[in-house]
């Protein structure tokens, strides 16, 4: 692979990492959710600098066309991140549900207390 292409790839990855760090700094992204994204960035850097690593891995797996292997790895990473996101959403809706239920129960208690108070005032 030529040097120009390598430099371009590194520049794109740098923009990607800066974007993540910016979002982290502005508190638009929690670190625990960003870790997977940062890891992906790190893996990409390593692969751009040492493409023979990937080649060696593909030969080991019996993948003949380099780009096919690259896409397979890409899809795998995206699936992993999507799975993590779905799990986060499930967890959030679980918490959301419990909050809603507790609010409804509290609303009933407040309403009954207010009714009782109004009755006492009227007396």
């Amino acid at each position: 692979m030529n040097t120009f292409f390598n430099a371009l790839a590194l520049a794109v990855i740098a923009i990607y990492m800066v974007l993540i760090l910016y979002l982290l700094r502005m508190k638009k992204l929690y670190l625990k959710y960003a870790l997977l994204w940062l890891l992906t960035g790190g893996v990409m850097v390593v692969l751009v600098l040492f493409p023979q690593l990937l080649q060696w891995f593909f030969v080991l797996c019996g993948i003949e066309v380099f780009s096919n292997g690259l896409f397979a790895v890409l899809v795998f990473f995206i699936l992993l991140i999507l799975l993590a996101l779905t799990s986060i959403v499930s967890n959030l809706s679980e918490r959301n549900r419990r909050l809603t239920q507790i609010i409804a129960l509290l609303e009933k208690r407040v309403r009954e207390l207010e009714d009782k108070e109004n009755e006492q005032i009227q007396r």
Partner: peptide, 8 residues
């Protein structure tokens, strides 16, 4: 009654 603030 209780009234849920969002539909569950």
């Amino acid at each position: 009654y209780i009234s849920l603030p969002v539909n569950l």
